[in-house]
């Protein structure tokens, strides 16, 4: 209210200063200039995306072949494929989601369905916010100190999975909470009114209704796992390892670290370019493919709910 009255005062003065209604022209011109600039800004942002994607796809697609995807790197990574890096990334996804998904969903259920407005709840919410904002390299340091050194898992797939799962737990909690909030309270009430206990109501009514949202959030965090480099660099990713990890205690290759290594170290950076583009494209396809699937799932269920 206060704000509108300020506007009123100012405009009132300007109306008088410019002789009543004729002020329209000047203001219109300003508006046109401002709107053009705003539109250009938004288009610039979209332009960044198009340029980055187009560049990687254009340079990378010719490298992609069955051999590239299924063969070990050869000749100091100047030839051959990226098979172990793909497998490593897939294992990271499975391992870290296996830990983070159940934990994140359970924490979100507690916060949304059980927690009262207590000091403890506030503390938990604050911890989640802070974990969500902590840089991934700090998670890497923590994983190194706790899992690699203190617990003694060593530089390994296991340490890296656990570190990544800590990184995405806040993401999963937040998206699950959002999905749970979106479930109408009427569902809970009418199930409780049928003499169904609270947990059974959550299990049979609330969770099924929230599943699309939970899936969407999980898929986005899978993308995060696939793309993170700094944490695995410190906890178990191998510079070069032309075989698959044979246990959860072995080191592994992963797509993002492989791309980093190819692009920055080694003796044949320029000669290696095609393989770099190919690796970037495979990584990008995995992450963006997951994003697109998430968007489609969300859209599908939104339409379904609108019947």
């Amino acid at each position: 209210m206060e704000l509108s009255s300020k506007v009123y005062e100012k405009d009132h003065k300007s109306i008088r200063a410019q002789g009543g209604l004729s002020m329209g022209l000047n203001a219109r011109t300003n508006e046109r200039i401002a709107f053009t600039l705003l539109t250009l800004s938004a288009m610039t942002v979209a332009g960044f995306v198009v340029i980055i994607l187009a560049y990687i796809i254009y340079n990378g697609y010719s490298v992609i072949s069955i051999e590239f995807l299924t063969e070990m790197p050869r000749m100091r990574m100047t030839q051959g494929g990226i098979y172990p890096a793909i497998v490593g990334t897939v294992l990271l996804i499975i391992g870290s989601m296996g830990v983070a998904l159940p934990m994140g969903v359970m924490a979100a259920i507690y916060l949304n369905e059980y927690a009262g407005e207590t000091r403890t709840t506030w503390l938990i919410e604050m911890a989640i916010n802070n974990l969500a904002g902590t840089p991934s390299v700090v998670f890497g340091l923590f994983g190194l100190a706790l899992f690699v050194k203190y617990v003694g898992f060593g530089s390994s797939l296991l340490s890296a999975c656990l570190t990544l799962s800590l990184l995405i737990i806040p993401v999963i909690i937040r998206s699950t909470q959002e999905a749970l909030i979106a479930v109408p309270n009427e569902y809970r009430d009418s199930s409780l009114a049928l003499g169904i206990s609270k947990w059974q109501t959550i299990r049979h009514v609330v969770l099924p209704a929230a599943i699309p949202g939970i899936i969407t959030g999980s898929i986005l965090s899978i993308g995060r796992v696939a793309g993170e480099t700094a944490p695995i660099l410190l906890t178990g990713a191998a510079y070069f390892l032309p075989r698959l990890p044979d246990s959860i205690y072995s080191q592994f290759m992963a797509l993002p670290y492989h791309l980093f290594v190819l692009a920055t170290s080694g003796t044949n950076i320029t000669q290696n370019r095609p393989i770099q583009y190919g690796t970037a494209l495979v990584l990008l396809s995995i992450v963006l493919g997951l994003n697109i699937i998430a968007v489609l799932i969300r859209r599908h269920y939104r339409q379904k709910l609108q019947i």
Binding site: P184, S190, A193, G195
Partner: peptide, 11 residues
């Protein structure tokens, strides 16, 4: 048992 104001079948 209870029947509510707005029809609220489960999805």
């Amino acid at each position: 048992g209870m029947v509510f104001q707005k029809p609220n079948p489960f999805p």
